[in-house]
Amino acid sequence: MTKETNNMVNEEMEEKQNLQEENTTAEGAVETEENQPEVEVNPLEEKLQEIKLLKEQLEAADNRYLRLQADFDNFRRRTRLEQEASEKYRAQKLATDLLPALDNFERAMQMEAENEQTKSLLQGMEMVYRSLVDALKKEGVEPIEAVGKEFDPHQHHAVMQGEDSNFGSNVVIDEFQKGYLLKDRVIRPSMVKVNL
């Protein structure tokens, strides 16, 4: 009996040991599985994600490029328009400075000539006046027509009102100082009297 009992005890111990080894192996396997991610990453999916990212970066770079190109085109257009305006109105400063001289010539030419010497002086002044007016015309400076025209606040500066039955309402009846245009820009409005 002792031998049989010993064998049985040995067998039981071996079974317990085998069970413990299996449990240890199973626990180790579980621990290893816990340390590693359950989902394996497919190399094809990685490449597709990388391609998608590169496409987004390329699209963003294209958008930046197109915006820069549009900004540059706008800058070029603005610069061209500024140069054209500068060229178109280059004579404005000179014309503005010469207008008081023209006014003085016009007032001087309204004098009555009492003798031949005064007449020849007035003729010389008129020639100088005409050459100034012609030079300004070549640059695009023209007088604004006022008397008999309807009052335009963009071209006329009303300093008085009056009543004249020969003119309609809101019509310029007298001009105190000539106004001038440089091409399409008013460089000095006319000082006028307007009919009520």
Score class of each variant (00 low, 15 high):
F167P: 05
V128T: 11
L98Q: 04
E45A: 13
Q177F: 08
L122S: 09
K149T: 07
R64G: 00
E59T: 12
E22W: 05
E84Q: 13
E175D: 03
R185S: 11
G28V: 11
Q49N: 14
L136Q: 05
V41N: 03
A61D: 07
E87P: 02
E116N: 11
K88H: 05
V133I: 02
E84R: 09
M191N: 12
E175T: 14
D134K: 10
P100L: 00
Q57R: 10
K52E: 13
D103C: 10
F72P: 00
E40R: 06
K3N: 12
L136P: 01
A135L: 03
D71W: 04
M1E: 08
E112L: 10
V9R: 08
K47T: 09
Q177L: 09
G168P: 03
R76C: 14
E45H: 07
R76W: 02
T5D: 14
Q83G: 01
N10R: 15
G140P: 04
L58Q: 03
L68F: 10
E106S: 09
Q161Y: 12
L81Y: 10
Q57V: 06
K47P: 00
H157F: 15
E114L: 15
F176P: 08
V159K: 02
E87W: 06
Q161K: 12
E114N: 14
V186H: 03
Y89F: 15
F167W: 12
L136V: 01
K138S: 09
N170W: 04
G140R: 07
V147C: 01
E4P: 02
I173K: 06
H154M: 09
K55C: 05
N23P: 04
L44C: 03
Q155P: 00
L196M: 14
A60Y: 01
A26Y: 12
R90V: 07
L196C: 01
L98E: 07
H154C: 04
Y180R: 08
M13D: 07
N166M: 09
D103G: 12
E34N: 12
R64C: 03
N10W: 01
A158H: 00
K93F: 04
Q110S: 15
L44V: 14
L53S: 09
K47N: 00
T25S: 10
V141R: 03
D103E: 13
E116D: 15
L182F: 05
A91C: 05
E38S: 12
L182T: 01
Q17V: 11
D62S: 08
G28E: 15
G179F: 01
L44Q: 07
E114A: 13
E142N: 10
E15V: 00
M8C: 07
E15F: 10
A101W: 04
I51F: 02
